[in-house]
């Protein structure tokens, strides 16, 4: 699945079976972790149903449109993905969860209330805006290559059709 996926642009075909989408057809966009590699896939309904769901990080549904130039992910969806991963003990999930938390703090969707040391690990204590519930996310020390790769994919996730950097992509998101 998605052997030649381009992060730069969402194709008008299914990442898996390469079938061209029809106008208005349901498209499932999926972020998944395969052996510590974060992948993004846009699949038709049939291929989506046959996927290995244990690799899912988050997915969302949209419809294909030839006219629509961009497809953006909203912060609420990222927030939901991050909350789910916050309880996941797998190392690769923790890395991504930490970066998502930083992204959401940076864009003030999450409030960083304090930090706590638990043993030799540092945890961010976060709170959603307009909520009293707090939850911890482990602060991670990522290798530069891994961090750059993950953040690059996050940038594409925010606006997969954009050629610019994360700042420009996020700028468009906020003004949309």
């Amino acid at each position: 699945m998605a052997q030649s996926w381009s992060f730069r642009k969402r194709d008008a075909t299914c990442s898996d079976c390469n079938r061209s989408y029809q106008e208005g057809e349901e498209v499932y966009s999926l972020l998944r972790l395969v052996e510590e590699e974060l992948q993004r896939v846009d699949a038709c309904r049939s291929c989506f149903d046959q996927r290995d769901a244990s690799q899912d990080v988050v997915y969302w549904r949209t419809s294909h449109s030839e006219k629509r130039g961009t497809m953006k992910m909203d912060f609420d969806l990222l927030l939901a993905a991050m909350e789910g991963m916050a309880k996941d003990e797998r190392e690769d999930r923790r890395d991504l969860c930490y970066l998502l938390a930083l992204l959401l703090v940076r864009h003030r969707k999450l409030r960083l209330e304090r930090v706590e040391m638990r043993g030799n690990k540092e945890y961010l204590i976060l709170r959603k805006i307009r909520s009293q519930n707090r939850f911890p996310v482990e602060s991670r020390e990522l290798e530069p290559e891994r961090r750059q790769k993950l953040t690059g994919i996050l940038a594409e996730l925010m606006d997969p059709t954009a050629e610019g950097d994360l700042d420009s992509a996020l700028g468009k998101e906020e003004t949309a």
């Binding site: 970066l99 930083l102 992204l103 703090v105 940076r106 960083l112 304090r114 930090v115 540092e122 961010l124 602060s139 990522l142 961090r147 750059q148 953040t151 690059g152 996050l154 950097d165 994360l166 700042d167």
Partner: peptide
């Protein structure tokens, strides 16, 4: 120190996500 760590995390969010 707590606020110092929070400040550094905000900085990391600026620097790590810009690349």
């Amino acid at each position: 120190m707590i606020r110092s760590r929070i400040l550094l995390q905000h900085l990391v969010s600026q620097l790590h996500l810009a690349g």
